[in-house]
């Protein structure tokens, strides 16, 4: 679905992407990385909105520089901060995007709009104005428009930010549902999303691909390197609720080992900077 080799994108003096190489296949792939690591730049590039300065990118087997239109017809994209015409109804908004997706024939377009609204469970509110919707519903609306035309590739930029736990849960159900028979790429800085949703992860660090694999493989990186102690030690550590310190890093001899999580593996991958961010 996506093959990227040596992607570079420069803004002024900074390099958002610095020789990024990775591949994405069917299923849900998480782009994991701290804020400001170039995830949005990358997603926009995959959405054919930005062109890389250097490197090779193939989307759905095509070159975005030449076949941009063809790729866009088979692509769904939810930006990080999607704007909505707040005075539009849910139906109106999705219908508007459907027109931008070249669905010209009115009746067929309306049927498709109803289908995607039904798929994300918003049929009840399809006649309501967007300004009356909750945050979780708006996020669903954002997903609905990506499903128009049943695209093969769906790109979601930070889709779970700002959702409360219950909304997040329902949202995960939805994403895993739509990821069943196509490629879904979602960017996130939260390892829970990755652990719960993704069958593959690409970890970004400083504009490069730090790791590519399954969530389980990330977790396994921390195997034997997470332990509890009464004193602060290890590379990364924090005091847990029961007064013990949970440490990540090379474990001392005879330490009381703990079961690692995806987050532990991720923190190890990122090293010190993420530790500060997490603290």
């Amino acid at each position: 679905m996506i093959e990227a080799v040596g992607l570079v994108k420069t803004y002024g003096r900074g390099r958002a992407l610095d020789g990024l190489t990775f591949t994405v296949g069917k299923g849900v792939t998480g782009l994991l990385g701290p804020n400001g690591v170039g995830k949005t730049t990358l997603i926009r590039m995959l959405a054919t909105v930005l062109a890389p300065d250097e490197g090779e990118l193939r989307l759905l087997g095509r070159d975005p520089a030449g076949d941009r239109l063809e790729i866009r017809r088979r692509l769904g994209y939810l930006p990080q901060e999607p704007g909505y015409q707040r005075g539009f109804t849910v139906f109106e908004f999705v219908d508007y995007v459907a027109i931008l997706k070249e669905m010209v024939e009115r009746r067929a377009r309306h049927d498709e709009v109803r289908r995607v609204i039904e798929e994300v469970g918003l049929t009840s509110v399809s006649g309501k104005r967007i300004r009356t919707l909750s945050g979780g519903m708006r996020r669903r609306l954002g997903i609905a428009q990506t499903l128009l035309g049943d695209p093969e590739l769906i790109l979601l930029d930070e889709p779970t930010v700002g959702l409360d736990p219950e909304q997040r849960l329902r949202f995960r159900e939805l994403i895993s549902h739509i990821g069943q028979d196509r490629a879904v790429v979602l960017s996130t800085h939260q390892t829970e999303d990755v652990a719960a949703l993704c069958n593959r992860v690409v970890v970004l660090k400083a504009g490069r691909c730090e790791f590519e694999g399954t969530p389980e493989e990330i977790r396994a990186l921390a195997e034997g390197r997470v332990w509890f102690s009464a004193e602060k030690s290890g590379v990364l550590s924090w005091r847990t609720g029961d007064g013990l310190f949970r440490n990540i890093g090379p474990a001392p001899e005879g330490a009381r080992l703990a079961e690692p999580t995806v987050e532990d593996g991720y923190l190890l991958l990122l090293g010190g900077t993420a530790a500060e961010a997490a603290a």
Binding site: A47, P82, G83, Q85, F93, V97, L100, K101, E102
Partner: peptide, 18 residues
């Protein structure tokens, strides 16, 4: 000016034409 601008950028419809 156009709230759905970013979504439109990735859509096949020509933004120039729009």
């Amino acid at each position: 000016g156009d709230p759905a601008h970013e979504i439109g950028l990735a859509a096949p419809y020509s933004m120039f034409r729009l």
